[in-house]
Design a protein around this nucleic acid. Sequence first.
RNA 1: GCCCGGAUGGCGGAAUGGUAGACGCCGCGGCCUUAAAAGCCGCUGUUCUUCGGGACGUGCGGGUUCGAGUCCCGCUCCGGGCACCA
Length: 832
Amino acid sequence: MSRYEPREIEGRWQRVWSEEGTWEVPNPGQEGFDPEKPKAYVLEMLPYPSGEPHVGHLKCYSLGDAIAHFRRRNGYEVIHPMGFDSFGLPAENNAIKTGEPPLVATERSIASFRRQFADWGVSIDWSRELATHTPEYYRWTQWIFLQLFERGLAYRTQAPVQWCPKDATVLANEQVVDGRCERCGTEVETRNLRQWFFKTTEYAQQLLDDFDELESWPPHVITMQKNWIGRSEGAEVTFRCESANLDFPVFTTRPDTLFGATFFVMAPEHPYLDQLIEGTEVEDEVREYVNGVARASVAERGDEGRPKTGVPLGRTVTNPVNGEEIPMFVADYVLMDYGTGAIMAVPGHDERDYEFAQVFDLPVKRVIEGEPEEGGDANGLPYSGDGPMVGSGRFDGMNNREAYGEIVDWLKLESRGDAAVNFRLRDWLVSRQRYWGAPIPIVYCDECGMVPVPEDQLPVRLPEIDDYAPKGKSPLAAASEWVETTCPKCGAAAERETDTMDTFVDSSWYFLRYLDAQNSEAAWDREAADHWMPVDQYIGGVEHAILHLLYARFFAKALKDMGHVGVVEPFANLFTQGMITRDGAKMSKSKGNTVSPSEIVARHGADAARTYVCFMGPPERSGDWTDEGVEGVHRFLSRLWRLGEELSAGAAGPVVLPDGLEGEAREVGAKAHWAIDKATGDFGRGFQFNTVIAAVMELVNEIYRVKDGLIAEGGDGAEAVRFATATAASLIQPFAPHLSAEVYEKLTGERVWEVAWPEADPEMLRSDTVTIVVQVGGKVRDRIEVPDGAPEDEILAAAKAAENVARHLEGMAIVKEIVVPGKLVNLVVKPA
RNA sequence: GCCCGGAUGGCGGAAUGGUAGACGCCGCGGCCUUAAAAGCCGCUGUUCUUCGGGACGUGCGGGUUCGAGUCCCGCUCCGGGCACCA
């Protein structure tokens, strides 16, 4: 007999799918569109094409493809597109090193990715392919920018921003982790620059509220986003500096501690600082401090354990609740970009303020009574718990929670404050001083100022340049022919914006472009979007839990408010896959423990590679790659293939399980229906693919057990084996589509992907007798076979009669009898 | 420090409160073969055994229950996320 040669089989079926465009689906209004068919949008996160795909991609697309196939065979019209997130720094950094234009390297990588995805046999509608670096795509990225700009959701302003010296560009807050660049790990610096922002804060509350709209997201991803958005309730209270004639609003979550405020602290970047110190004797000292802070890295400043530092300003503000004058300080533990950049300090009830008070020997005042907490001083301060108010005038004696509301009401009455909500979320900084991204479609004119490029002049094409090296501003600034333009409004000489957009902008809307990828008149057609959105199953790595997923959610909400889409949440269901490790460690070239998907596919076939990554274990958890594991799966597929060969000697034709089977023929038929039931159930429970595959393995093992006898016998027995084999092929299709198509066609003459997912026959799931476990005192002592549905007394009698049970009942009295029908008997005993 | 996960054979992992270890890997034995590869069949938690079976066993300590890997309380260790956000 010949051998299972996966590459031969796979190539053959891949050609069929490609030539016939099997996975292409029509939009509403197009030929072949069936409005009756339910839709399913299955999407894996947009890959960044760099070199070759890795096993993480293999896992992601294997999982997604399994879902796509399963849904198709359950009657859904499945849209399953693919594209490339092809703007980005790696290609540009490569260009700086080698001089090779990013476009060239990018297109090479895309070709390699496309080839391998095809090689894996992933069921993709390639007619919808997109790449974010193409003018056909970024034209619409620019269009969305202008849409946001028109509505004030994109704006340009000067602000302290985070600068990565290695990547030579500013970064969004989300892209700074522990004071380091999320991409390259370099410590970031603070710079005061004019930059473009998207107003994500406008949607802060909605980004929280709309979690209710989601069907199924991993709870920890929602938690991470909630933490990132960081909503706090409290009050805004105004402190007045009489000597400078300035009002300072502060945000506090503890208005109940207002009477305990003994000093006042401002962030070093606070815009009023200059006015406060100019010409005073502390001016030099403060400036030196502020400059020192500016020089320090963000990571250093973020270190919580560091001793508190600061400088007194020699001025006071008035505490609005009691008229006390309290001293002002500048200190770097107060951050400019949270709240108002200034705080009231309550050392008696806030740990950080307490530390600062210790350094400067400032008074610490208790305003809430309570049991001392761990780490408090001799007076039990700072105290963060609840209790009755003290030293707080007419609020004394009240519980602090009650006083909280009373104080806010009083502040409001006096016009000195009000209840307030604050978010940690900041606006998204989207401009980058780099080349390989979508140009920001704005022109600066001496007369008209900032002018958006009119829609009909899009795209603003990225020019070709020679020198990609960053020089503190975008390399585009040197392309003078491109920069110099005319004002779209008045026609005078004008200059283009030279910054490009963060590549996360590109990937914040790509799932909409897929729905109408060829449209040259619009980014997408509203009807197409209404039909396909939202994404029914989104799959990707948890590393995007905040960045990409938050930005895409923001886009969906803004686009909805602008009337371009009908949904507020783009991804109804999210699945985050775990990493594949090797020898327990993350794969990396430097460790030399990488696994190359192309090698695995060449050696064992795409079907084995795909089935293995789904079989490794629960896909949300990380799993360790072993070559032996792939070989095991290959062995299993090979067994199934050989069954196909052995059984396809006769003519292919309809395979039906005959009625009235007995003995092994009945057993193998029942096993097939058991596998259908198990596989269908586990598919319904999410991504439990390992047990689906295990069920098909069990079925194949059962077929091997009985096949020789039944085939020799011929007739219904042989037909039962054929049915079981066709069923195994059918059930493995979402994971091993090529082998499945091959075996299924040989047996039945049909194309498995066009065949409905099988249904288990309840009649075949039942058996005449059931095995009942008999326990004595909770310990398994024997097993008995009884007719299905036998009455309890009959079961009990049989149980007590069982040999090993009888032995354990000797000298014992039965005190209780538990009977679980069809399962188990437990005889509770005590010594007689 | 706070918030999530997780802990089951030599390994990856299965188990609606009801037979712990499905399925796969590794290992061992047999068949086939001149031989090997491939394949097929069987065994494979630990331990005791008079070979009938017995004891122990899901990170640790308690509890609920006829019955707990599963539920409750208290820990340990490992992984991840957040952390001067007023």
